[in-house]
């Protein structure tokens, strides 16, 4: 059908449309970021004027064993969190799309997201407690060994990842659901006429048409889960033995507990560059900038 919008350069209306967003971008994002990048080249304890020290913070970070360990556990978290969350949310969105129109179910699914994440973390901290938690009571009841969910090095990060999956899966499902709703109904009619089974409908109709939204969701959740902080802060505090000292938590610790703001800024710059790289690669791989829906 190939109807094209006029090729006229629309830069004037575009700029007008961008004015308010640009004010916010410049004042509340770009300026603080430029300042932060500058501070990453300084020795700055927040309470005294920063002194320029060139690349020293970056050199120190390179030799900082805690930094490398924190990167490793962060990747572990992102992998578990995003993997589990995306798969479950996608399944859930399709289920909601294909099997129910109930508003109650939609409301229920998003309920965990209504509870502040600090509270969610505390609730699970309790449910998963070794001595007083219901989960370990059940595990013990069926004759298995109790698990130190937040306290053992092997379990701590996966547990935290699971808690956040629990809170965000309904939210992610709603985002994907919004995408499913934008798929024209007649393609399902066509699939039905063809006699396609549930999985075939998913693979050849739903998934391709959902791709732009899926790409968006992946970029946003990956970027978001790299910045995990609250759940760790109220449960493990980075332990046991660095097992949950994710990069963003380490940055906060350096900045506000150890008053090493210059160093923390350098860590933050590294995290930003890493995230920007990942997001741009994702965007390219997933071709997020275009739609499969023919225009």
């Amino acid at each position: 059908m190939a109807a094209k919008v006029s090729r006229d350069n629309q830069i004037v209306p575009a700029m007008l449309f961008l004015i308010p967003a640009s004010i916010g971008f410049l004042a509340f994002f770009l300026w603080p970021t430029i300042r932060g990048i500058y501070l990453s080249f300084t020795d700055y304890n927040l309470l005294r004027d920063p002194t320029f020290i060139g690349f020293q913070n970056y050199i120190d970070i390179f030799n900082d064993a805690v930094f490398w360990r924190s990167m490793a556990v962060t990747f572990q978290y992102v992998f578990i969190n995003v993997g589990l969350q995306t798969v479950i949310a996608l399944a859930l969105a399709v289920l909601m799309h294909r099997f129910t129109r109930s508003m109650i179910i939609r409301g229920v699914v998003v309920l965990p997201y209504l509870i502040a994440n600090v509270i969610v973390a505390l609730v699970w901290f309790w449910l998963a407690d070794y001595s007083l938690g219901l989960i370990n009571a059940v595990i013990d009841g069926i004759g298995l060994n109790k698990i130190g969910f937040f306290g053992s090095e092997a379990w701590a990060m996966p547990t935290i990842a699971f808690v956040n999956v629990w809170r965000h899966v309904g939210y992610t499902a709603l985002l994907l659901f919004a995408g499913l709703q934008a798929i024209p109904r007649d393609v399902y009619e066509a699939a039905e006429v063809d006699g396609a089974g549930e999985f075939r409908v998913f693979r050849s109709v739903t998934l391709p048409l959902l791709r732009p939204i899926l790409a968006f969701v992946l970029v946003v959740t990956v970027v978001g889960s790299f910045q995990i902080f609250d759940t760790i802060a109220v449960t493990t505090g980075g332990g046991p033995v660095d097992a949950t000292r994710a990069i963003n938590f380490y940055i906060f610790e350096r900045a506000f507990e150890r008053f090493d703001f210059g160093y923390a800024s350098a860590l933050a710059v590294i995290l930003m560059i890493l995230l920007a790289t990942i997001a741009l690669i994702q965007n390219r791989l997933l071709r997020a900038n275009e739609s499969d829906m023919e225009r």
């Binding site: 300026w31 603080p32 946003v220 506000f256 933050a268 930003m272």
Partner: peptide, 17 residues
């Protein structure tokens, strides 16, 4: 460029803001 704002860490923005 706008998208990069998604990746700006909170410690950069909180004090200047």
């Amino acid at each position: 460029l706008f998208l990069i704002a998604l990746m700006v860490p909170v410690i950069f923005t909180i004090l200047p803001n």
